[in-house]
Design a protein around this nucleic acid. Sequence first.
DNA 1: CTGAAAGCGCTAACAC
DNA 2: GTGTTAGCGCTTTCAG
Lengths: 350, 350
Amino acid sequence: MSRKVTIADIARELNLTGATVSRALNNRPGTSESTRRLVQATAERMRYQRDRIAYSLRSGRSHIIGVIIPSAEINFFGSVIHGIENMANQHGYNVLIYQSNELPAFERKGIATFLGTRVDGILASIAKETTDFRHYLEVKERGLPLVFFDRANDSLHIPSVVVDDFKGAWYATEHLVHQGYRRIAHIAGQQHLKIFRDRLEGYKAALAANNLPVDDTLIYYGNVSIEAGRQAVRHLLAQARPPDAVFAVEDFSALGAIKELKDRQVSIPGEFGVIGFANEAFGEHITPSLSSIDQQTVQMGKEAFKLLLEMIEGGAGQVQHHTKSRIILEPVPVFRQSSLRRPLHGGQQP
Amino acid sequence: MSRKVTIADIARELNLTGATVSRALNNRPGTSESTRRLVQATAERMRYQRDRIAYSLRSGRSHIIGVIIPSAEINFFGSVIHGIENMANQHGYNVLIYQSNELPAFERKGIATFLGTRVDGILASIAKETTDFRHYLEVKERGLPLVFFDRANDSLHIPSVVVDDFKGAWYATEHLVHQGYRRIAHIAGQQHLKIFRDRLEGYKAALAANNLPVDDTLIYYGNVSIEAGRQAVRHLLAQARPPDAVFAVEDFSALGAIKELKDRQVSIPGEFGVIGFANEAFGEHITPSLSSIDQQTVQMGKEAFKLLLEMIEGGAGQVQHHTKSRIILEPVPVFRQSSLRRPLHGGQQP
DNA sequence: CTGAAAGCGCTAACAC
DNA sequence: GTGTTAGCGCTTTCAG
């Protein structure tokens, strides 16, 4: 085990002192051009590598950011992490992962270890079970930069990066209208989550804007699962005036709906149109392929890191005023077979 | 920004000295029961939190492990990370993520930053483009615990956790035999990757063991993609004596094969059986649903961490001898519609 | 332009 | 049992 080479080693080698070597390595003023070059060359030769722990202790900066996600197993978050890590890496930061498993207790533990590790900032997506947000507010009060992504909570006044769920739902619903569907149902998600509420509102608004009535009997409240999608279809088709299309709050409900419709020999998209939300990987491969709304996951990760970085570098105090503290990404519709019964072209409007 | 509370603060509060407080907090011998309790209570009250940076600098241990993966966007790795992080968390460790993006240059950079951060160990899955393994050998020589997962390289003699690709391929192939298929083709992957070579060998061995000839014209060498799967089917069906089933080296090729077969109105599994490898999420949802071999991703992450932990705690030197340095996980067949043309039951053997 | 010295917060040796 | 001291590796005053 070859011992690590330290600044002291280099200093000894060159008959200098640690201070000078440090200055030279960091290109700080107060060293002659020649010694700086000499020092840097020897450092290279000796394979010197700055000890970030010591650096952190001294400087108070770790160049590490902490990221709290519900689970790395969920595709969506893997994709966001991808965006975060790539951007962080470009800026000399590393990424510490912590999974909440959707439980507030883990969130608190994650924040605690992050504080101990002196991360320079925290990115977080709130756990489903979290209703008390004090641990997040404490982070803010400590002056540690914090940015939410995807699952945010506006009332906390903490910067966030989210996708525009309202608009995405609007796009999805309006697309079904343009495709000639007239009774459009909605499979809704748990209403205590803002993202699902927003989608419901977007759905309603798009109907209204297109002079279609909002019929509460066409809204099915489920729990975001394949089974909920199946149940929704059973429920909707049993009605006196059944719908001819459905916008599902996310892709798994949409998948359940498609499965149930196929079981009942309802042709998609001919008799019935389906569109989901999230653009999960499977949507492209099922039959019929699933139309959906893409949430720009990688971009979300990148924007979240950039916002955090501004806060870190700007000094957390001022950021609230100087930087845009709420970034809303544009959802991107992805139209596939499940909702297309007429050719797509530019002039879709009536 | 309320300043951090340190051991010194507690000591001052109690008219003690830092050393005693430290001992008490860490339940180390040499403190009276009463003071220990007192100290711990005050620490709690003052919301003391141990500074891990200082701890690390002093102790040389960071309780952080570094994980190098090709990309967090790939499902498989997200799932492994899930296993790693959960297990690490249980043992008081945190996980630093670094993506290689399949490039050795990033791997080297990742290792360098990990060394700087004094991670206690490294878990890595080798990038596809990596052919020179010196950076990994250096980690080993420095005595820093290192474990490969999934993408390993035996010749380096570095501990690893992998799934038994040979056996998985054997299971897949033999299953097709048991289902009555007699001319079984294989869509192979790039042969410079060991995992793909092993699957090819498992396929051949299973055929031989079942007294079926290994016919080289039934092996298609592709590049692991949907398109390769389609090409393979086109190629195979054009032959004088076409196959009646195919074992694809992974699920995307299998998916391509299914798409092409459906386009050609070949009935699955009646006329033609298909099985893949990896048990990707989409396989369950396509039509027909895809049979595959599960790679135990979460388990892989957990085992990898446990092995690394043994090395960390045991002292890296001895581990080579004391611990099982190569863990081979049992692949788990998942039989679905694409390969089932007779009912499954216990007595499958002829 | 360079050196000496202090200190980030913690723990481990060695006193007492 | 508790205190004193030193030091992990680095940066940053303050002197020279």
